[in-house]
């Protein structure tokens, strides 16, 4: 069995893309261990979640080379890209509102805006994240959670 040159090229490029994606996953994990606090770590976590998966699955599609498998892989990539931000946003929001990230920040545009709200006095800079569910929404100034799907 002798594969055509094109098929061989697609195979090798696909294998290389899988390799590259795995390398990006590894770099993201290293970042996850090395970076100092939660919000910085979530930057590093985006890499295996988005770019790593994307490259690996494109590589798989290049090696399988059938239409329906490529469609399924595209669907996997689509949903991964759609649901990843939901989780990372909720984690970042929760980290911002409960954790002590304020001391590490150089400046903070959001803190000023949160403090300007009348129902949130300065002495409680980190309100409960469940506040919006518990209290009635009295003004337009409430956090909006971007959700996918």
């Amino acid at each position: 069995m002798n594969p055509t040159p094109w098929a061989q090229a697609a195979d090798t490029v696909g294998a290389f893309l899988v390799f590259l994606g795995a390398a990006i996953c590894l770099l993201g994990s290293i970042g996850l261990v090395k970076l100092p606090e939660v919000l910085s770590r979530s930057h590093a976590a985006t890499k295996p979640q988005a770019l790593g998966i994307l490259l690996v699955l494109v590589g798989v599609a290049l090696r399988l080379r059938t239409g329906i498998d490529a469609g399924t892989l595209a669907l996997i990539i689509f949903f991964q890209l759609l649901t990843g931000p939901v989780a990372s946003h909720l984690v970042a929001r929760s980290a911002y509102r409960t954790g002590g990230v304020h001391a590490d920040l150089l400046f903070d545009d959001l803190d000023e805006q949160l403090s300007e709200e009348p129902d949130m006095p300065r002495s409680h800079p980190r309100p409960d994240p469940d506040r919006e569910d518990a209290a009635p929404k009295d003004g337009p100034e409430d956090g909006h959670t971007p959700g996918g799907g």
Partner: peptide, 24 residues
């Protein structure tokens, strides 16, 4: 706990990547 939550996300991503490598 939030660090661990991020880890959970990345674990799912790594499992997908690993299964992808297996499929390739």
């Amino acid at each position: 706990m939030l660090d661990r939550a991020i880890c959970l996300d990345v674990t799912a991503a790594l499992i997908i990547a690993g299964l992808g490598a297996q499929a390739a």
